[in-house]
Design a protein around this nucleic acid. Sequence first.
DNA 1: AACAGTTCAGATAGTTCA
DNA 2: TGAACTATCTGAACTGTT
Lengths: 199, 199
Amino acid sequence: MLSNNPHWNQISSMEFDDLFSLSNDFNPQSDSDEYSMLLDDLIKEETSSPTETDPYQLQKALPDDSAHESRVPTLECGVCGAPALGYNFDQITCESCKAFFRRNAFRDMSQLTCRFSGSCVINIQTRRQCTYCRLKKCFDIKMRKDWIRTDEEKRIRQLQKLTKEQKKSHRLFNDHLDTLSLAIVSRKKKQLCTNSTGQ
Amino acid sequence: MLSNNPHWNQISSMEFDDLFSLSNDFNPQSDSDEYSMLLDDLIKEETSSPTETDPYQLQKALPDDSAHESRVPTLECGVCGAPALGYNFDQITCESCKAFFRRNAFRDMSQLTCRFSGSCVINIQTRRQCTYCRLKKCFDIKMRKDWIRTDEEKRIRQLQKLTKEQKKSHRLFNDHLDTLSLAIVSRKKKQLCTNSTGQ
DNA sequence: AACAGTTCAGATAGTTCA
DNA sequence: TGAACTATCTGAACTGTT
């Protein structure tokens, strides 16, 4: 990045070193940057998890292609039968069952109980009345809890975003540096010229 | 999103501080002002992201008041006719009948008796005069005692809450670790740089 | 465009205290 | 007993990412 800039050739080695070491601290791509390595390692470690890439998604066809125009109202939540907008966690569900599943999928089913026989009818009216049976139905229709991001995954995503933003600001900074160094060089040159003509 | 997370704010601002002080170490005296101005600009860019103020909040500032006004007074307790706020145990009731039902629903009806014929009129004035008939009316309008949490359920809930809190503090701890490691790395870098220029 | 995450206000269960 | 609180769950409506 910096070394590609032709202006740098004209600067004395001391100045170059100064600026270079300075820019290093801002350059996450530099090999010597421990912090970015740390981040990169973390990111690599976590993103290689199998849930991140989604082969399923590619296979999946639109559920009702013939009714393309009227698709929105035809979909029906597999859990409660409410109108659905599309797939959530691998099954067609309404927004509320999507939110419900995200909130509850990692709860211990053995800690939940049904007040009745464990086979409550779940529909748009009754869905709130039995957490156990609603959640059970979510799993029955094969909603996938492994598609819910864990806290750890969220943390990693934030790190990635941070790195990206940093890279952006580094780029900005380096651009500024380029401009700045040009000014410095020309000022020094001017000084030199003034001195030599003064002699 | 990032800027909504207080931890990340800490991290990024801390880093900038570090980098700032680091860059000062390297600054040739004459240019330090220019550098710090430059850094100030960068910092401003980072911290004044548009997500800082929550646009969502502004949008939702004014919910429709008309619906709000008309909703509250129209509901009427199915047991005593007092103003009600909404459903309790599956029926629209006032707060007092809600509390009454929770306290008495598990009592044995055969142990209670009405002083009169067992068909007292229950209204806002008379509701306290006959426990039997009030409770009977609660069941008559089909309030559901199975929606009252048992002690066992309460115990399980507390346990789950505890687990959740533990997970949360664990996460917080990890976040702090991240912040800490960033600080250490930055400081080490600074040391390394200072050493190398000292040589 | 599809879908995962996030936010906020509403609903309703529990709790406290005079 | 009941008014007034707190806590938690829910779902509509959003944002963000791929």
